[in-house]
C-alpha cells in the first residue's frame, strides 16, 4: 500500500467503526441467544410453531434445557412474512421512486420544485408510529372497501389475489407492503433526485443534439450514469423495509403460526414480532423466550446479508432494462 497517509488511515478508522458496531451487535446476540440456538436447533427456521408455553407453571427439563412447559419456537411464518412484505414494498417503491425523482428533477414547474421536493422529503420525517396510525385509519379501510374489491374483481381468479379467501379486514400483507413502500420511497427518490440534478449538462445536451426526446434523454442517458447511486439507494431502502417495526406491527394484522394464503391475509414480520413479544418474553423465568427473540434478530441479520447480496445482483439487471 503506497498511500497510507495519516489522513487516509484516520478516515479508514472512522469507517471501520460501522463494521465494528455491527460485529459487536452480532457477537452480543450470538452469545446472548446461544442457549436458544442449542435448544431450538434447525427446527427454529423450518417450522411454523411459536408458543411461549405456560409461563405460570414451573419450568421443565426438555432436551437438557430448562423451559416453560409447552414452549416451542418455530419462526418460518415470520420469515415468510418479512421477505414477502419487503419484496412487495420494493416492487412498489422502485418504479414510483424513479418516476418521482424524474418528475421532480425534470418536469416539475421550477417555482414549485422546492415545495414539491419537500413533500417527498417530509415522508422520511414522519415518525413510523404516525405512519401506522395513518395506516389504521385511512389505508386499511381503503384496502377493505376499494383496493381489495378492485383487485379481487380483476385478478380474483387467482386465489392469491382473491380477498374473499381472507378476513377481508384490510389488515394484512398488502397494507404492510404499501406502508413500507411509502416509507422507503423518499430514501430512493431523494437520493436519485440529487443525482439526476448533478448529471453534467454536456451529457444531456449531446443527447438532445442526437435528436432524442426528453424522456429518452433522461432514461437513456442520465439514468445509466446514476446507476450506482440507484442501486445503493435501493439496497439501503431494502434494509429499512426489513427492519421496520412499529408501522408494520400496527397494520399487518399480527398473524401467528400460519402463512399468508392471499395478498390480504394477516402476516407478522420478524422485527414487528420481536417488539410485540418482548414484554411477554421478559416474564419467562427460564429466559428461553427472550433468548429465542434474540435468535430471531440474529436470523434477521443473516437474512439481511443474503437479501443485500441478492438485491445488488437483481438491481443490476433492473437497471439494464431501464437503459432501453
Amino acid at each position: 500500500m503506497k498511500n497510507l497517509t495519516p489522513f487516509r488511515l484516520s478516515l479508514a478508522g472512522l469507517a471501520l467503526v460501522i463494521p465494528c458496531a455491527l460485529i459487536s451487535i452480532v457477537f452480543f446476540l450470538t452469545t446472548y441467544s446461544w442457549k436458544a440456538i442449542g435448544f431450538n436447533g434447525f427446527g427454529f427456521l423450518g417450522t411454523i410453531n411459536w408458543s411461549l408455553g405456560n409461563l405460570y407453571a414451573n419450568p421443565v427439563h426438555q432436551h437438557g434445557y430448562l423451559v416453560p412447559p409447552g414452549a416451542k419456537y418455530g419462526i418460518l411464518a415470520f420469515i415468510v412474512g418479512t421477505l414477502l412484505s419487503s419484496f412487495l414494498a420494493i416492487l412498489f417503491a422502485v418504479p414510483i421512486s424513479i418516476g418521482t425523482a424524474m418528475f421532480l428533477a425534470e418536469k416539475a414547474p421550477a417555482n414549485l420544485r422546492t415545495a414539491l421536493t419537500m413533500i417527498v422529503e417530509l415522508v422520511a420525517v414522519v415518525p413510523s408510529v404516525v405512519f401506522g396510525l395513518w395506516g389504521i385509519f385511512v389505508l386499511v379501510p381503503l384496502i377493505a372497501h376499494v383496493i381489495g374489491p378492485a383487485i379481487t374483481a380483476t385478478l380474483g381468479f387467482i386465489p392469491f389475489f382473491n380477498m374473499n379467501n381472507s378476513t377481508g379486514s384490510g389488515y394484512g400483507l398488502l397494507a404492510a407492503s404499501i406502508v413500507l413502500a411509502l416509507m422507503i420511497t423518499p430514501i430512493i427518490a431523494t437520493t436519485l433526485y440529487d443525482a439526476l440534478d448533478q448529471v453534467p449538462r454536456e451529457l444531456r445536451e449531446s443527447a438532445y443534439a442526437l435528436g432524442a426526446t426528453h424522456f429518452e434523454v433522461v432514461t437513456g442517458t442520465m439514468l445509466p450514469t446514476v446507476r450506482v447511486t440507484l442501486i445503493g439507494a435501493i439496497v439501503l431502502a431494502l434494509g429499512r423495509a426489513l427492519g421496520e417495526t412499529m408501522a408494520v406491527l400496527m397494520v399487518s394484522g399480527g398473524a401467528l403460526n400460519y402463512l399468508p394464503g392471499t395478498l390480504f391475509t394477516p402476516i407478522s414480520t420478524m422485527a414487528a414480532f420481536i417488539l410485540s413479544q418482548l414484554d411477554s418474553a421478559l416474564q419467562d423465568p427460564s429466559e428461553m423466550a427472550v433468548k429465542s427473540l434474540a435468535e430471531i434478530a440474529l436470523v434477521l441479520f443473516v437474512i439481511t446479508v443474503i437479501v443485500n447480496a441478492a438485491a445488488r445482483l437483481l438491481a443490476r439487471g433492473t437497471i439494464r432494462v431501464i437503459q432501453l
Binding site: 411459536w50 408455553g53 405456560n54 409461563l55 405460570y56 389504521i136 378476513t167 399480527g254 413479544q277 414484554d279
Partner: peptide, 30 residues
C-alpha cells in the same frame, strides 16, 4: 392455556390488533 401472550389457534378469519385503541378500531372497521 393463559399468559400475557398466548399462541392463538390459527382461525382463518382471525385478526390481531395493537393495543386497546387498535382493538376498538378493528371492531369499528369490521
Amino acid at each position: 392455556g393463559y399468559g400475557t401472550t398466548v399462541s392463538w389457534p390459527a382461525v382463518p378469519a382471525g385478526l390481531g390488533a395493537q393495543g386497546n385503541p387498535g382493538m376498538v378500531e378493528a371492531l369499528k372497521q369490521n
